[in-house]
């Protein structure tokens, strides 16, 4: 065994570089274990199949379609997200790695890293579920651009509203049920907005000004800022 100094480097990091390191590491672990993806996608696919099978594309009157389809789509998206978005924090707690993370990264960076990871999961979820839903249910959309913007901003909202809640419930008992119970009231305004927005996009009426997308974007910004402020309190003892 050789002697000598072990290391001589000292580092300097930014919030963003720390957050990206955490995000990439979470992605790498997720690719290997498919811990969260399995939970979310299986939930989403089974619900989608159940909806499509029991309702089909002809049961609902054409005039009712825009509204009811928006409701069904967002119920699938929100509850699939709630079934798996807490995984990354819960896993960290269960494996006992939270303290190592606390010692090596700034709390805001941890929040951002986990937010990026959750947004990646949500992106994958929407990429699979939304096109399948449109195809299976023969969802006709007058303004696809507005519709896509609504789906994307709504997805960001789901991530921004739930990441700090996930950090809290990871440190509590009865985690699974608690996550939905705590997140749902926070997500309701977003969900109502997104449903309304998708309905308008389908009808092709009243999309001027993109009001719903703006509300969703405002929701994302405010929840992110508030979470960044509050996260250190939740994360550190």
């Amino acid at each position: 065994m050789k002697g000598g100094r072990w290391t001589t480097q000292t580092g300097s990091s930014t919030y963003l570089s720390e957050a990206i390191a955490i995000w990439l590491r979470d992605l790498r672990i997720e690719f290997r274990t498919r811990y969260a993806v399995n939970a979310i996608l299986m939930f989403a696919v089974t619900t989608l199949v159940a909806v499509s099978f029991s309702i089909g594309s002809f049961r609902i009157e054409a005039s009712e379609k825009p509204f009811l389809y928006a409701v069904l789509l967002w119920i699938i998206l929100v509850f699939s997200a709630l079934s798996g978005l807490s995984r990354s924090f819960v896993k960290e707690e269960e494996a006992g790695t939270m303290d190592a993370l606390r010692l090596s990264a700034r709390p805001q960076a941890v929040f951002l890293g986990k937010l990026f990871f959750n947004l990646t999961l949500l992106g994958a979820l929407e990429l699979i579920i939304v096109p399948s839903f449109i195809l299976l249910m023969k969802y006709e959309i007058e303004y696809p651009g507005f519709f896509a913007a609504m789906i994307i901003s709504g997805g960001f909202g789901l991530g921004a509203g739930t990441t700090i809640v996930a950090a809290m419930i990871a440190q509590a008992s009865a985690r699974g049920a608690l996550f939905s119970a705590l997140s749902f009231p926070l997500l309701l305004p977003l969900m109502i907005t997104a449903i309304k927005g998708c309905e308008r996009a389908a009808i092709g009426m009243g999309t001027a000004g993109w009001a719903e997308v703006k509300i969703a974007v405002a929701y994302v910004m405010i929840m992110m800022v508030v979470s960044l402020f509050l996260f250190p309190l939740v994360w550190e003892e």
Partner: peptide
């Protein structure tokens, strides 16, 4: 270093080192 302070079990030793380097801003 403490018994209660775990490393990431799904990563290899090198990947663990890589993560802790990156997160601390060490090349």
């Amino acid at each position: 270093a403490a018994p209660a302070l775990s490393l990431y079990e799904e990563l290899t030793a090198l990947e663990n080192m890589e993560f802790f380097c990156r997160v601390r801003g060490i090349a």
